[in-house]
Design a protein around this nucleic acid. Structure first.
Lengths: 255, 255
DNA sequence: CGCTTTTTTGACCGGTTTCAACACGGGTGG
DNA sequence: CCACCCGTGTTGAAACCGGTCAAAAAAGCG
């Protein structure tokens, strides 16, 4: 009897995909998928490359970048575990992808996906939705970047990280920034100096803590609600009111 | 013999759609479509509404707005004739739509569209592409808004209008702004005063002319290439070099 | 322990915002 | 017909924010 998965295949966990496929189709999909590991900084694909796979983030953070007409490379999006990088229907990549941290991906060949689309009409719709939520994320991010001060951008960025898949602790959150100051600056459309200034400001205000220890990438958020408040409106003296903010994390969630 | 169209149905001109449908299907689609007229300022649908139709802009300009968490309403996109507002696969509207000018739309009920999708598998893909290009537009717009000065934003905005469906004249273009200064400011993420200042600056530089006449919304662009140049890089004294700029107009084109 | 790279901090400058006043046009009603 | 008013757009002056330049401090690395 043959093994169901290749030795480096990976199970598809996305709820949306599982529900529109039969057992056989799911097995076929998983059989064709391959687990791939990247070390921080490694390139996954480049802008302009022919699209060959769709990817699902298993662990780590993926960074999407694009070359601006002026030649500068800008970070335009981040993807976290369970996010689906849906290359379907795009013949060429419209941005580059790079491992921001050590990264594990599930790579699904496009041929597999499109042959499955033929069999399972529902699948196309699922992928469609994934791309659409990606679109919505873009809109939200536009709104975030436009009227917001540098302070709010940094706060918003940290809130995003605090929310998505990182070690939680009692009351607060502690995590490691997946991006350097330069990359954060690029992502937020500001300079590294400003990023640095805003973060020390937040530290002074008690919104975050920066353990003096080794890495300058360690961040502790003692009070997530307070951080969220600062992301919405600059400075609120009090001990935070609850907030039901619309996250609007700019990343594509699998359907 | 029965009339093919209802008296207020409208012909579907989109090339992409026509090629994936049979005669019968096309007739069905057109038969279900309805031409709707709106006066400037009228609301078409609201953020959060249940999605009931897809729309194609026949004439005029449509304005997409969204409420920012801070309560402010922001213009996040514009749509011009032949653009497709593709509500498919979204159960709820994610932004409000309003007539920026007097407006004519072709409204297509979603049921019609989804029943056709079942018959014509290619249609789903066409709509998918439409949404995708919308997505790409969003990315481009993010890039445009980030590094650019207020001057470049206004120039880019005017170039967008000059390109999309407005009266052309020999050599130059003359058109009426579909948005008030306040709306332009909101769209570009700057203040009305700045919009005003940049426009007078452009006038001084000879990039645009503002007929003293009644409406302060009349704009003449004597030299489109010059305008494009100013949208890319601030001030270029000379009499414009040709430009093959990546338009990146943020609006969704029908496939 | 030196070296490089990254991050932080400071001083300065320019563009935008902000606040405020004014101009223009189009209504309304006397 | 004109005075008045209100909304929209323009213009001016000062404050602020973030960018740029420069240098010091901290962290990584041999």
């Amino acid at each position: 009897m043959q093994k169901v998965h290749g030795h480096n295949a990976c199970p598809i966990r996305q709820r949306g995909i599982r529900t529109v496929l039969t057992e056989d189709q799911l097995r076929k999909l998983e059989g064709a998928s391959r687990r791939k590991s990247f070390k921080a900084g490694e390139l996954i694909f480049m802008e302009g490359d022919i699209t060959t796979h769709s990817f699902i983030v298993l662990s780590g953070v993926l960074k999407l970048t694009k070359i601006h007409p002026d030649g500068e490379r800008h970070v335009i999006g981040l993807m976290f575990p369970d996010d689906l990088l849906c290359g379907v229907f795009k013949s060429h990549q419209t941005c580059s992808a790079e491992a921001a941290t050590d990264l594990e991906l599930c790579a699904i060949p496009l041929e597999t996906l499109s042959s499955l689309t033929a069999e399972a009409p529902g699948l196309e719709r699922v992928l469609f939705r994934a791309a659409l939520s990606e679109l919505e994320g873009g809109h939200d991010w536009i709104l975030l970047l436009r009227g917001c001060s540098a302070y709010q951008r940094v706060a918003g960025f940290l809130r995003l990280l605090a929310k998505r898949g990182l070690q939680e602790e009692l009351g607060g959150v502690r995590f490691t920034l997946p991006l350097s100051r330069a990359e954060i600056a690029s992502f937020l459309g500001i300079t590294i100096e400003t990023v640095s200034r805003q973060m020390t400001l937040m530290k002074k205000r008690g919104v975050i803590e920066l353990p003096v220890s080794r890495d300058s990438r360690e961040v502790i958020v003692p009070n997530l609600a307070l951080l969220a408040a600062h992301a919405e409106r600059e400075q609120l003296g009090g001990t935070a009111g609850a907030f039901g903010g619309s996250a609007g994390a700019y990343s594509m969630e699998a359907a």
